[in-house]
Design a protein around this nucleic acid. Structure first.
Lengths: 337, 337
DNA sequence: CTGTTAGCGCGTTCAG
DNA sequence: CTGAACGCGCTAACAG
């Protein structure tokens, strides 16, 4: 293993000079710099990051906690994160938590152990210990930010869209097509963004004169299967909805499959709207009307935010809301008179 | 920051004893061990991994190179990898290479820099420098293995399925339904597994009497869009195929969309077969007949293999072939007489 | 601008 | 079974 010492000897300078020439070339006069570079070249020296990290107490790693990496939406966000991380000499440590809060906390320990400098979570839980009545960020926490989700109690720096507004817009759009009996298949209840979507849904439903939504709202778990099962329940009830809004595209796809299995037509009999605009949304049959989230941008922005935190910048007022967009495709049509 | 020294003082022992008590409790007599544990508890000590890694020259990290993390198939493999890694106190460093060999090599440098102990790649390139005429593993390479893909020249430890056989079986199945004019939309030409699939396709086509497949084979890039475009080309030609076999499910989904856009019916007019069995395959319309790869298992096995390499075990005869399965769904039907 | 000196926090000898 | 002493490879502080 060739070390900095070998390079120093070869170049006829001290190890400190080698270190400087490599880390901050301007700190060294051109002639010495060249000598060092030549010696590095000749010896095939590669700095030992282990030693450097140890010395500087930095890992240049960010732990990304994701509920499920096989979900294409999350994967895109991570791709955005990684892109920015890589540009800035940071690495991404992957933590697939399988929607399990305990797993999250186990992973977050890596930070205490100095295996990562910061944590980004795509889930809605805070992966550190804290008292239930805490309302602010604990200064002992490492740099920490959230994407897609946010925490309702503690103002953690966050990047997401306006979920309430998005859900509202979906209902208004459907209502403009004459729909009134609009079912909503939501994600897990403990997720703040799902609560927001529900609020947006209810608000707009009230606006169009539907106040009792109890039989129209079902809680799913974001999986294809739960979309299917939820739709089955809706169809088992007395009068069926004329439109269904699912809180993500995977559930919407399950919904579509189930509707067809019952011999009904989309959008003639039932309109379907999804959420996320994953890439399969445009090849469903019919193509899925859905809310597009800027998933790649969400990732880029949250990593950029993380870089700020890592630099020690203030965490105030760091709640970024990105624009969403309703993408109208073929799965929605006017309600039958 | 509470260090091992603080614990030692608190427990009234030396740092060496603390280290031993923590790393290998049996090396220390029960009474001292207890003293140490209590001191750890009381002080809230967490070992500094940075220092430990530096000292032991190990990172407990594995770099996973993936062509595209947003591809659900790869994501599942990674989930399997991470699962086993986590169980064995290893971490996964994510390297999304965007199908770019240079990116791969840049990432693999992390190993030289001691940021990871080993590399697993899901692509078909070897991310280290080597002479084109090399036929064996370079002993200077770090622990290295491949999943899904393999290298045709160098016997890198690998976990994959028998792609030639799988493709053969697809063609035989289609031929058993009376199809003869079977198009094949393959993935990138430089991928050995795609070459295998092509070989299997050709072999079985020959068996059923079709020797000239030039107009039936198209090279795609595994994206939905390339499935679409390829299908468009096939439909633009004189006589159209009665069945289409796509080298992955995403392309198959593009194929299906395009077929429908031309007003043709699946499977009545054209049968479609995919590859991978991603989770959306069962909710396409009609549900997609496809080859199931044990993606999760592939990940688990390759990580298990990597653990062996990391332990310094021999690399001989480590080519694992896992079982695939043809999943027949509704997108295939007998050829029209 | 460059060299000297001094650790970072651990694990691992080697004595005792 | 335990403690003292050392050093991994690097960077930061301080002189010169």
């Amino acid at each position: 293993m060739v070390s900095i010492k070998d390079v120093a000897e070869l170049a006829g300078v001290s190890t400190a000079t080698v270190s400087r020439a490599l880390a901050d070339p301007d700190k060294v006069v051109a002639r010495t710099r060249e000598k060092v570079f030549r010696a590095v070249e000749k010896s095939g020296y590669v700095a030992n990051t282990l030693a450097r990290n140890f010395r500087t107490r930095k890992t240049n790693m960010v732990l990304v906690l994701v509920p499920d990496i096989t979900n294409g939406f999350f994967a895109s966000v991570i791709q955005g994160i990684e892109w920015v991380a890589h540009q800035n000499n940071y690495r991404v440590l992957l933590g697939d938590t399988q929607y399990n809060p305990e797993g999250e906390r186990a992973y977050a320990e890596l930070v205490a152990q100095k295996q990562a400098d910061g944590v980004i979570t795509l889930g809605c839980n805070i992966p550190f210990e804290y008292r239930a009545d805490r309302k602010t960020i604990d200064p002992n926490w490492p740099p920490f930010s959230m994407a897609c989700e946010y925490n309702s109690q503690i103002p953690v720096p966050t990047v997401c869209i306006d979920n309430e507004l998005a859900a509202s817009e979906v209902i208004e759009y459907l209502s403009s097509l004459g729909h009134q009996k609009i079912a909503f298949i939501n994600g897990p209840k403990d997720s703040p963004i799902c609560q927001d979507r529900l609020r947006g849904y209810k608000k707009s439903m009230r606006k169009i004169g539907v106040t009792d939504t109890r039989k129209l709202v079902i809680t799913g778990d974001f999986s294809i299967n739960s979309g299917r099962e939820s739709m089955q329940r809706l169809l088992g009830q007395g009068s069926r909805p004329t439109a269904v809004f699912a809180a993500n595209d995977e559930m919407a796809m399950g919904v579509m499959a189930e509707i067809k299995a019952h011999g009904l037509k989309i959008p003639e009999d039932i309109s379907v709207v999804g959420f996320d605009d994953i890439r399969f949304a445009e090849v469903t049959d019919p193509p899925l009307t859905t809310v597009r989230q800027p998933r790649h941008d969400i990732g880029k922005r949250v990593m950029t935010m993380m870089l700020g935190l890592l630099r020690g910048e203030s965490t105030k007022s760091s709640r970024i809301t990105l624009a969403h967009e309703l993408i109208v495709r073929g799965s929605t049509a006017p309600a039958r008179p």
